[in-house]
Amino acid sequence: MKLGNLLIAGLISGSIYAVFAVCIAMWFRVSNILNLAVGDFAMLGALGTDHLVRVLHWPTAPAIVTVIVACGVGAYLYDKAILRLALDGRRRQEGIVITFFFTFALSFFIEGLAEVLFGTNIYAAPTLWQGNSLSWGGLHFERAGLLVLACAVVSGIAFTAYIRYTLSGKAVEASGESYVGASIVGIDTRRYRRNIFIMTGMLAAVFGILQSPLTGYAFNSGGTIGFTGFIAAAYAGYQKPGRAVLAGVAIGVVESLLGGYVSTQYNDTILYAILAALVLIRPSAMGLDVAVGG
């Protein structure tokens, strides 16, 4: 039973990494920008909903809808105000590192804003599927954990299908492959970049609402939790949403097994050493042999 429960715990924590990895991979695919702020949208979803329900006494459903819409509007405004200037302006900024700094700054800004709005304590959105954990043959499933797992699987499948089977998905791919080339053949690269940014921001907010009952969120949790997705997405070359889900889940499971069977103190250290070794051994297989300059 120990192995089973460790696997379940790993699947749940891996699902958390997976959803952020999907969001990061999808937006990188269209824009070639790494989004470090994706975890902060999750934090906004969780703390925003909690604030509306617990402090302002809103009903849960309108609170959730309002917060998700607000995250979408925030992402839209950020694209209009900042990304358009940085990426489409007279002095277009290129290169993974320099563009990464815009989302890095956005992460700082959102966390600073959340500190002002929600304070420094840890809160969580209301649990959507209430009740005791489910048990089956000695295995225990947290209800919120199952929602998290479902969210990861659905988002991974949906984005993979979107890219693979829709014309719009092909346009997303083309935008990421060549900004200029895609524009020449009539693809509105800006629109795709903006739409995916908004979509992944809103997905992260939904996920934050579902997941927060498991871990809780503080104003600065987003950066940390999003960072794990950032690492998982690396193993999908920051490109493939389906592979990002698998990578996230695999990392969670390995982490859980290391904690259960090897060392609770050094499980993360060993995990990161394994991850570093994987990148160094097969960088091209992961699509990481791309230049970072600009």
Binding site: A234, Y238, A276, P283, M286, D289, V292
Partner: peptide, 13 residues
Amino acid sequence: KAPGLALAVASLM
């Protein structure tokens, strides 16, 4: 020996 982004990701660990 890791090229481009691989160096960044590996060293991030």
